[in-house]
Computed example of a mutant assay.
Amino acid sequence: MSLDKINGFDITEYAPALHLGEPYLSQTSFPLSLKPSAESSETQTSTLPNLLSNIRSLSLNGQIRRLLDRHSAIYFSNVNLADANEFSQFVHAFGFVPHEDIGNPVRRTVLANNVATANEGPNTQPVYPHNEFGLSPHYPAYHPEFIKALEEKGVKYQLTYYNKPRDQVESPGNSVLQAYGHHVLDEDDTETARAKIEKEIRRLPTATWEWINQSPSENPLGDLRVWQVLPAIRPHTRTGQPAFFNNAVSRFLNAVDAQTLEPPHLNKEGKYQPPAFYGDGSLIDRKYFDAAVEVIGRTRALVTWKKGDVLLLDNHAVQHGREPWTGDRKLLASLWDDVK
């Protein structure tokens, strides 16, 4: 590989990218920016098949994996993907194993095979920094005592799913049936519906739950409260390096916004909205979260989206009971219309 070309792509300067220092290797940019080379496009009558062929080659020879190991993210510009179906073809050209989404707390709309919107919440609500699928058991040191505590205790999340119609669209969050009710039928009685929902929750080995707010006349099924206790520090499957991989910071910032950091963690609507806890249920000192937010601010790259471009993020983490390289990978996210 030359310094500026790689199998049908040019390595280009990208203004929003960060140039990382120690302990990273020299000339490590985040993200690395690639765009189809002019000669590659000119020699083919159809750009999309040529693009997909180049991606398959780079994946098969290990080049994509090596670039992700070094840069953690690749920004593909000027690939000119026209719609979600073309993006789906692009996604599958990498040969990654699709992630199975179980119990997602946010509502998404499926647009094509293994392609969905990131979040259907209103664009007036911020999306705080988080690791994608950090709330999933199968997914990736400024205060050593904090890192040690996280390694020993893990992190505990509380998620509430309200019993709303399966096709509800007014709420940014998923309902009970949208998150766990894939096998529930309209004619199922309450006992049968709960059994099917609980069977789906059990597919998450780290989850516990309780039914709340039951009312025989108004809400016979009830709302669902789920707790997930997960590791907050996870090893990268390729490098073995520990990674701060979790959704604790986003939960903290949501609680700051809702003024629910301290017990009893009730928001203005009287709903329970706590931050993330240590795995044993104890509160995490705010000073650690404030430090994490400050580090994120210094190390983030603010990508300027353009329709049809793609950002590929390394989202590796070790799955319990599975060997490295067989864990799920998640490909994020292309933009078609707007960014929420």
Results as ranks from 00 to 15, higher is better:
Leu150Thr: 03
Lys268Arg: 13
Asn247Ser: 14
Ala149Ile: 03
Leu185Thr: 11
Asp4Asn: 14
Pro242Met: 08
Thr117Glu: 05
Ser46Val: 03
Glu269Asn: 15
Ala291Gln: 09
Lys156Trp: 01
Ser72Met: 12
Arg322Gln: 08
Gly270Leu: 06
Leu52Phe: 04
Val293Asn: 07
Val79Glu: 09
Glu200Leu: 07
Ile102Asp: 02
Pro129Phe: 05
Gln259Met: 08
Gly281Asn: 04
Gly279Arg: 02
Tyr162Thr: 08
Thr299Leu: 06
Leu311His: 09
Ile284Cys: 04
Thr239Trp: 08
Pro220Trp: 12
Gly327Ile: 01
Thr192Met: 11
Thr160Ala: 06
Asp10Cys: 10
Leu48Trp: 05
Val184Trp: 10
Arg65Glu: 14
Gln44Pro: 03
His236Ile: 03
Tyr75Gln: 13
Pro205Tyr: 10
Ala232Ser: 02
Gly21Met: 03
Thr304Asn: 10
Asn254Gln: 13
Pro263Gly: 04
Leu312Asp: 01
Lys153Ser: 01
Gln319Arg: 12
Thr304Met: 02
Phe245His: 14
Glu198Gly: 00
Leu18Asn: 12
Val229Cys: 01
Thr47Gly: 08
Glu218Asp: 15
Val176Ser: 04
Thr208Gly: 04
Tyr139Ser: 07
Val97Met: 08
Gly308Leu: 02
Val91Lys: 05
Lys307Ala: 14
Lys153Tyr: 04
Arg225Val: 04
Leu52Gly: 12
Asn50Asp: 05
Gly279Asp: 03
Ala118Met: 15
Asn213Tyr: 03
Pro216Ala: 08
Asn54Arg: 15
Pro23Gly: 00
Ser59Asp: 06
Thr260Gly: 09
Thr239Gln: 01
Pro264Gln: 01
Glu200Asn: 09
Asp223Gln: 07
Pro105Ser: 06
Tyr139Asp: 01
Val169Leu: 13
Phe94Lys: 09
Asn7Ile: 12
Ser217Leu: 13
Ala73Ile: 12
Ile284Asn: 05
Trp336Ser: 06
Ile201Asn: 09
Pro264Cys: 04
Glu218Phe: 07
Ser26Trp: 03
Ala255Gln: 07
Phe289Leu: 02
Gln125Trp: 14
Ser136His: 12
Leu224His: 06
Gln259Arg: 14
Trp227Tyr: 09
Gly154Tyr: 05
Lys307Glu: 06
His316Val: 06
Ser37Arg: 03
Ile55Leu: 03
Phe96Gln: 05
Arg202Trp: 01
Gln178Gly: 06
Leu68Met: 13
Ala258Val: 01
Leu302Gln: 11
Lys306Arg: 15
Asp285Cys: 02
Arg66Lys: 10
Val106Asn: 13
His99Asp: 07
Asp338Pro: 00
Pro216Glu: 07
Thr109His: 11
Ser136Gln: 12
Ala38Asp: 11
Gly134Asp: 04
Gly154Ile: 05
Thr239Phe: 01
